[in-house]
Design a protein around this nucleic acid. Structure first.
Lengths: 240, 240
DNA sequence: ACAAAAGTGTTTCCGTTACACCCATGA
DNA sequence: TCATGGGTGTAACGGAAACACTTTTGT
């Protein structure tokens, strides 16, 4: 809180960074840009930027950056604040405090539809060398990945990775790919359907080659899952 | 990320606010100050302040504020970042972005030992009128309370509310008071002791009036609890 | 001896897992 | 009719809840 003296608080550049995740091509991927300017030129980095004006809201800045990078409206995706990073020398040029946001976007819909889609690309999170990331973005990314994984346990955000309509298999693949664990299709289906409001039946079903058609669902109104869907750590085997 | 143009990012005042909780007098309480200056003079507010210098780290600022208010060293308490609040008009004087921290401090140890202990006081969280709080602190407090309650489920932070040595009853009272639910003493004890590293026996026991002496424990090295200790919602009854 | 608080053992219950089985479509 | 993927039913397992019972102190 301020003081009655002529002392004034230090003024600092505030940035917003994004950890945008998707499930693309059977992999859990994050959107990274290749830096074209110093410092850390050539390194990979999370997309982001400074507040556009002194009166821009933090969440508005995050939504703006998301739209610039992916072309997606914030209403279509899950966007939540992750954490704030402000170690004094994290940017060598000046003191920067960055508020990081976590975004989960649907898979095939958003390769790079945005306008300002410069050198951004999806990278599988398991293939990223921590040392190849600029600033403290390796730390941020690690925390974002863990946040996303744990959010699948106790919320319904997994539907954010799917399109507006999806099958149980598609939803289950999201869990399997993000967690890197195989799940029993039959138990998974029962568990999801027993959680009120997780999904709603559309009445429609898929038309596909081979196999019985699957019922199509859309995301329901529920946001929290209780009890959580635990990644029990006992059931292993490769996810693919 | 910055641009190569002469454009410079807006500079903003960055503050750190604290939600300091304790279990005092059989109640879950938070440290609030009564504002002595405008705006919102006379309202209650979370303790906090601007960064002292342009190079002060965020967590260092939080630890400094905590020491000023309670006299406690950050090493003795649980201190973690909660969230950042930056709605443009949350402070009518100027644009302020506040990084909020959650602190959990032991009960009888810290009434107001700090030096700069002006008009700060512990208030039971259930007795606080949201409208009596300044700025957006009602929102912040609500999120901090929920964070503290859920942290008890999947971490060992409850020991932060106890002194260096404590009995099972004392630890259980922490859960009961924070959650507002009664817990079975016998099942609770077994559950805690079955979690490796949650507590360690000291070998000592209490000397008290009436009743069998209780074994004394200290906090163990474990930080995460898996599976979580769920507040099942089915077991009700008043906490006192 | 009795009250009070601490700690142990045991039964019951319920959600999860594992898995056998049936269904619907295309080739 | 067979392969493929979708969906249902059920027995077995395991952790948690409920609770009877024993232990150790003070008065």
């Amino acid at each position: 809180m301020p003081q009655a003296t002529p002392w004034t608080p230090p003024l600092i550049a505030v940035a917003v960074d994004l950890a945008v995740f998707t499930v693309l091509d059977e992999q859990f991927a994050v959107l990274l840009i290749e830096r074209g300017i110093e410092p850390d030129i050539g390194s990979l980095a999370l997309p982001g930027g400074f507040l556009a004006t002194a009166s821009e809201d933090l969440s508005a800045a995050a939504a703006r950056e998301l739209a610039e990078e992916t072309g997606l409206d914030a209403a279509q995706v899950h966007l939540e604040q992750l954490a704030t990073y402000g170690v004094p020398d994290r940017d060598p040029r000046q003191r920067v405090v960055t508020v990081c946001y976590l975004a989960l976007v649907p898979g095939p819909l958003s390769p790079m539809a945005g306008g300002d889609a410069r050198n951004a690309a999806w990278r599988p999170v398991d293939d990223i060398e921590p040392a190849s990331l600029a600033f403290d973005h390796a730390t941020i990314l690690a925390e974002a990945v863990e946040r996303a994984r744990s959010k699948l346990e106790y919320t319904t955000v997994a539907t954010s990775f799917c399109g507006p309509e999806f099958t149980m298999s598609e939803l289950r693949r999201v869990y399997e790919i993000v967690w890197g664990r195989r799940l029993d299709p039959r138990n998974f289906q029962r568990k999801i359907l027993n959680i009120p409001g997780f999904v709603e039946a559309t009445g429609k079903q898929t038309v596909r080659n081979g196999g019985r058609p699957a019922l199509l669902y859309r995301a329901g109104p529920a946001r929290l899952v209780q009890p959580p869907i635990l990644r029990t750590r006992t059931d292993d085997s490769s996810p693919q």
